[in-house]
């Protein structure tokens, strides 16, 4: 013990360092295992989509054949999904922006109640919303058969995300004050909306837009109830391919889905980072 005391620092500290390193290594391994557990299925699924024959395995060779087949079979579905997503976006902006502004301006009990009602679809299963829509409007057969029917469902489902992300920005930039400032300089309500409110709400608008598009593209619950064989969307087609195609085609479809949705998610992440910055300034 007495000899150990002389070269004081390193020798006494070493067990601590060792323990810390071991702990770190253990945590790293655990984290990696957990991440692998979650990521491997997705990776395998995508790999299956470019494998010649999944039952033989990767050694049967890689191919883009299944992807081509998916495109051939489902191009119109994929396209329709984008049309619906963009249409949903347009409608949620047209309704959501003025609604968020009005709710923010009022800010009273009525406004909070309306906000709650708008948010309600988040808590109700998509199936229930779809059933309600079918009960109410299912008899208008032209409407029922068109993609507009799905659009209505998507708008109900995504509107709260748009309204809420805009309202968050409205609260952060003190829009009422900016509005009064512009009014004092002679700007009419429309000029204020165009020159001051919309530009300052842009971060929330962009974040909300990406969210709406991503949710609309990925929405399955509601859409599955509302679709007809002629109005399938991306995820509904995915279910369809899982049910009726060979495994490689279904997996290739997953790959297509990833390719479509991941850039949107990355953009959303990027916007969230920037939104955090703009939210902090006054």
């Amino acid at each position: 013990m007495t000899e150990m005391r002389r070269p004081l620092g390193p020798i006494i500290r070493r067990p601590h360092v060792l323990r810390a390193r071991l702990l770190f290594a253990a945590q790293l391994v655990f984290t990696l295992l957990l991440a692998a557990f979650l990521i491997v299925p997705a990776g395998l699924s995508m790999l299956a989509g470019v494998t010649e024959n999944y039952f033989i395995g990767v050694r049967s060779g890689l191919t883009l054949r299944w992807l081509a087949q998916v495109w051939e079979l489902y191009a119109d579905t994929i396209l329709r999904s984008f049309v619906i997503a963009i249409a949903t976006l347009v409608v949620t902006i047209v309704i959501g922006l003025p609604a968020a502004y009005a709710l923010h301006r009022r800010g009273d009990r009525v406004a909070r109640l309306v906000e709650e009602i708008i948010t309600l679809p988040l808590a109700i299963p998509g199936l229930a919303i779809a059933l309600a829509l079918l009960l109410s409007y299912g008899n208008f057969s032209d409407f029922r058969r068109s993609w507009l029917f799905i659009l209505v469902g998507h708008v109900i489902f995504t509107l709260p995300f748009m309204v809420r992300s805009i309202m968050a920005v409205l609260a952060a930039v003190n829009i009422n004050l900016l509005d009064e400032g512009a009014a004092s300089l002679g700007a009419s309500p429309w000029q204020r909306f165009r020159d001051v409110i919309v530009p300052n709400v842009k971060p929330g608008l962009l974040a909300g837009s990406l969210m709406v598009v991503t949710l609309s593209l990925g929405e399955f619950n509601l859409t599955w109830m509302l679709h007809t064989p002629l109005t399938k969307t991306l995820p509904v087609g995915l279910a369809d391919s899982y049910a009726s195609m060979r495994l490689e085609v279904a997996s290739a479809y997953t790959l297509v889905f990833f390719i479509m949705i991941i850039p949107l998610l990355v953009a959303m992440q990027f916007m969230a980072g920037r939104g955090g910055l703009t939210g902090g300034r006054r």
């Binding site: 900016l178 009064e180 512009a182 004092s184 300052n200 300034r281």
Partner: peptide, 20 residues
């Protein structure tokens, strides 16, 4: 008459400058 047609100049406590 609403403020935008009164032709007044106003300086606000927190300035209300337009960040955009």
């Amino acid at each position: 008459t609403p403020i935008e047609r009164r032709n007044v100049g106003m300086v606000f406590q927190s300035y209300a400058l337009f960040p955009n």
